[in-house]
């Protein structure tokens, strides 16, 4: 049976009608056109579909859209501020932390969840934060570098604001 679903998506109140068997991933990509979130394995293994649900990184392929009723969802499309890329996005470009780019939105969302709660992560903490995100081309060294650089940039901005 179709349900009316109301939730906050990238800061805006959103209302959609959907079936219970719609995954959050399919809702975002196919119904709402937010194709920044990638569909990889659909097994909750690869992390390409990572979004933030109430600030927590989750696999949107293993989340039902109807579970989001009343909750807060943030996707890769929602993290730029006033037309400017988020520091994590900027540092991924700066450090060449991607090749094909398919894992990148998920990586960035996992990194954002980390930095939102832990502004000074160790390298181990960065690696653990992206443990559920697979990259099959660049490898992880530059991704870890980019996240560390983004943390440094955000901390510098916070201290000098």
């Amino acid at each position: 049976m179709k349900k009316i679903l109301t939730f906050t998506l990238n800061g805006e109140k959103t209302e959609v009608i959907c079936e219970p068997n719609r995954s959050l991933l399919d809702l975002l990509r196919d119904d709402l056109g937010l194709t920044g979130t990638k569909k990889g394995c659909e097994e909750a293994e690869c992390g390409a579909c990572t979004v933030l649900l109430d600030g927590r990184p989750v696999n949107s392929c293993a989340t039902l859209a109807v579970e989001c009723e009343g909750h807060d969802v943030v996707t890769i499309e929602g993290i730029a501020r006033n037309g400017e890329l988020h520091p994590i996005q900027k540092q991924f470009i700066e450090k060449w932390a991607f090749q094909c780019g398919y894992c990148t939105p998920g990586m960035i969302m996992s990194a954002k969840a980390l930095l939102d709660h832990n502004p000074h992560p160790t390298e181990t903490e960065i690696r653990e934060a992206i443990e559920g995100n697979l990259c099959r081309c660049t490898g992880y060294a530059k991704i870890v570098e980019a996240i560390a650089a983004a943390a440094a940039e955000m901390n510098w901005e916070a201290e000098n604001a």
């Binding site: 992390g47 927590r56 989340t63 653990e128 934060a129 992206i130």
Partner: peptide
């Protein structure tokens, strides 16, 4: 258990 994303849910 599994990954950070799974443990958050």
């Amino acid at each position: 258990v599994a990954s950070t994303q799974i443990r958050h849910k």
